[in-house]
């Protein structure tokens, strides 16, 4: 009986190790391509939210929310752009969001760069309902019925973008 159990454990362990090695090999050559694709998508989304802009990446404040992965300043003073990665209970990957914040501190434009939720909250229409929202009003925007978790994750990401913007403005003013 003991021999049988040892064999079971050994076989399962060996199979797991072989599969792990195969995944590591695949990841080693796909990871750079995936990172390159993501960078291209982010660059395209920056141009989409502030067309014709040129961008300078800023260091994130130490207490910036985890959803904010990068923050850019448009060099001619058109505003800021936050790059976000949000997740919900029904995510199969990060929901990529690029949000432009105007000089008045309100959401000026939003672009979705990745969407892996099990329900579509209307990728082309729902984000547009946040345009004009400020840190005080962003949580008043309605969620999308039928995709409550995904739209809540999106709403919280928008609030995080505005909070990070406020931190950066306060830091530069202070």
């Amino acid at each position: 009986m003991k021999k049988e159990y040892i064999k079971c454990v050994a076989v399962l362990t060996v199979i797991c190790l072989v599969v792990a090695v195969l995944l590591a090999v695949t990841n080693s050559f796909t990871a750079p391509v995936i990172a390159e694709n993501k960078a291209k998508t982010i660059q395209a989304s920056l141009q989409q939210v502030i067309p014709g802009g040129s961008f300078e990446e800023l260091a994130l404040p130490a207490d910036a929310p985890e959803t904010v992965t990068a923050l850019y300043r448009e060099t001619s003073g058109k505003g800021y752009v936050a790059v976000l990665a949000a997740t919900s209970q029904y995510s199969n990957g990060d929901m990529g969001i690029t949000a432009a914040i105007g000089t008045d501190g309100s959401i000026a434009a939003v672009s979705i760069t990745g969407y892996y939720e099990s329900k579509d909250f209307g990728r082309d229409t729902y984000p547009q309902t946040f345009i004009g929202a400020t840190a005080d009003t962003v949580m008043d925007v309605d969620v999308f019925s039928g995709a409550t978790y995904s739209s809540n994750a999106f709403k919280e990401a928008m609030a995080d973008a505005l909070a990070t913007y406020s931190m950066v403005k306060e830091a530069s003013a202070g």
């Binding site: 995944l23 695949t26 796909t30």
Partner: peptide
Amino acid sequence: VTIVQLLMQAY
């Protein structure tokens, strides 16, 4: 499945 997923995500 993960290998297929990584390949699709990359290419």
